[in-house]
Design a protein around this nucleic acid. Structure first.
Lengths: 185, 185
DNA sequence: ATTATCTATAGATCTATAGATAATGC
DNA sequence: ATTATCTATAGATCTATAGATAATGC
């Protein structure tokens, strides 16, 4: 039943990756440790050798999810970012999508460490959206904050209305996409 | 143990009001029916005579919360709305604050009926933010969608960083507040 | 007689722990 | 000998239901 140290590290990685996806899809309380470990291909008994608590896994999973988000978005051409971010495909796939939009609700109720990991992701996205020159304060950073807020708000509203009011959901995506294509998007 | 029909209706109202507050504060999975009913001054045994399920209470509580939100915001002078919405006080009090920002995550995973109640709230806020002329499509409605998205996104990000990165949280509130004060805010 | 609310509980979760097992790594 | 993972379970929840109770409303 024991595996090599290398394999154990790989298993731990897979748990974090799985959590980064499932917490975004179902929320922190929407997935239990038994099912989460099962999705990672393990049983739940080994969990507490690798993590002190489910809350600690949220901290790591948040860090992982925000890294995935900024890495992915950095690879999208600046001119396409708003269209990709506000697409129906992104709306339908929170598990592989923006960590800020998908985790904000749970992170607002999490501890300071998790919020700090989340904030680091916000900073990286600001640098990305602002074209690299938004790290310091000033007008470029203010533009980036305004743009990121509109992106996150539009996606969050679109997801909460996707099934019950698909026309409004599509309209919100399309409208903000169009507005952001004009300037800093 | 039985009360008058009038009192029973008042009790039911209080359960919906309590849920509208607690779901915003703790999330749908963050409050159990036993504690929720206790906060409403009742025991949990009577719950299922008034509501078919906890999910059905979410539908009603969402409708109640969005009504409170649009009613409150309609009473705030248009010039002050962005400052009130993006205040530290609003950030600290989700239970009595904007239903869109506080419930979006849970509603994205809820049924179509709950999403429809949420969408009705979005429409009412668009009319409010747009100054009443945003109900029909056109530039005024697009402005309102852009403004509401920025408001919701900024508040959601500010809440998720309030404890772990208070400087960033304050900065997001202040920046978007300043930007929206200029135009449609 | 009806019914709103109560007490009590069933049955299914959930997080976390205990102890066994078996392969790694000294 | 150490340890990563397993099986099994403790103890605390959670949603939902059953049946008793007592006041309302016919």
């Amino acid at each position: 039943m024991r595996v090599s140290r290398e394999q154990a590290n790989a298993n731990r990685e897979r748990v974090v990756e799985t959590a980064a996806r499932l917490f975004r899809e179902r929320g922190f309380d929407g997935i239990g440790l038994v099912d989460l470990m099962k999705e990672a291909g393990l049983t739940h008994g080994g969990f507490y050798r690798q993590f002190p608590s489910k809350e600690a896994l949220l901290t790591e999973a948040t860090g992982r999810a925000v890294s995935q988000t900024s890495d992915y978005l950095a690879g999208v051409p600046a001119a396409d970012r708003a269209a990709v971010y506000l697409s129906r495909e992104h709306r339908a796939n929170p598990g592989s999508g923006c960590a800020i939009a998908a985790l904000a609700g749970d992170v607002a109720r999490a501890d300071a460490k998790t919020q700090a990991a989340f904030a680091a992701g916000v900073e990286r996205l600001l640098a990305c959206v602002g074209g690299g020159e938004a790290a310091t304060s000033g007008a470029a950073r203010a533009d980036a904050i305004q743009t990121l807020s509109a992106l996150v708000g539009a996606l969050v509203i679109a997801r909460a209305t996707a099934t019950g009011a698909p026309g409004l959901s599509d309209e919100v995506l399309a409208t903000v996409r169009k507005r952001l294509a004009g300037d800093a998007g």
